[in-house]
Design a protein around this nucleic acid. Structure first.
Lengths: 155, 155
DNA sequence: GTTCAAGTTGAAGTTGACTTGAAGTCAAGG
DNA sequence: CCTTGACTTCAAGTCAACTTCAACTTGAAC
């Protein structure tokens, strides 16, 4: 894009470290907006880069796209979001991270005592019945599912 | 089961805190074994409860079923596994948890400094480019995907 | 011997976050 | 004008870990 300051989907993808398919997907999901050229190609404002940055950071903290959508929906309409707006959105992540860390620490400590005792019994072991701090996750909840170990994707 | 000490799929499921469909699924995946009655119904040895306990604990630590399968494959053939065998298997989880905790702490601390500065820029923010300690996870890696927040499933 | 909860199978569905493919169009440089 | 890389759409595929369904059979209690 040399005529205006709008970005193509490829440029956005490259600068955001995503695949173009992901960018299109996010647009289809209503997470970002785009205008179109006469020929029907997408053109993005620079602002989407910040949205995508928020989106990616939010994912790192464990939010789903639905939650990201909800969060983004609280941004002001009409006026461009300020730093304070973004800070407000992300301030809640800290609590979430604290909980997640606490849950893992509890699990690790349970593990430490468990290894020694050789237990692993179904109901008594803290490894199978993680601490109360995360009890709301339910019996089948996994602490760190596959995504953590997934190979590098598009970028 | 009153005639022998074998367990039906329902009993195993109840005692392991799983759905029967999950127990059958694990068997189909080669994670546990079963004998059959004349009529074709599954009968499990008590030993599978320990295997399922291991499986569930491993999932809590973040292992996939593939990894669980690999781990279980290292159990001795012919002789029943000892406590030491189980302890050997689970000892490696600790390191994994330590890494995961470290990654989250890094993320949280990055967040703390980030909120103040209002950044969120694409490449410079630690929230989008998590610390080196977990760099191997790749650009798109999520720390705590949806499963963490999933509602309780079968039990 | 009847009953019926609990068991059986295999295929298909679920969820989230995307990716892939096919078949065709656009736009910018030369 | 021509080429060619980048773009378009939309349906379908992917992955993990199961669940659900339908249609049918077993087995233990009474």
């Amino acid at each position: 894009m040399r005529d205006t300051d709008l970005l193509t989907v490829g440029e956005v993808a490259r600068r955001a470290g995503l695949a173009t398919s992901a960018v299109r997907f996010y647009e289809a999901q209503g997470l970002i907006d785009a205008t179109r050229t006469a020929g029907g190609q997408r053109r993005y404002e620079r602002q989407v880069l910040r949205r995508l940055a928020f989106l990616r950071a939010a994912q790192n903290v464990g939010l789903s796209l639905d939650e990201v959508r909800d969060a983004l929906a609280t941004l002001p309409r009409g006026r461009p979001p300020t730093k304070a707006d973004w800070a407000r959105l992300s301030a809640q992540w800290r609590e979430r991270l604290d909980e997640q860390i606490a849950g893992l620490v509890k699990l690790r400590d349970g593990l430490t005592s468990c290894i020694g005792c050789g237990c692993l019994s179904l109901r008594s072991c803290s490894l199978n019945n993680p601490g109360d701090g995360v009890a709301a996750l339910g019996p089948g909840a996994r602490y760190l599912p596959g995504a953590l170990r997934r190979p590098v994707r598009a970028g």
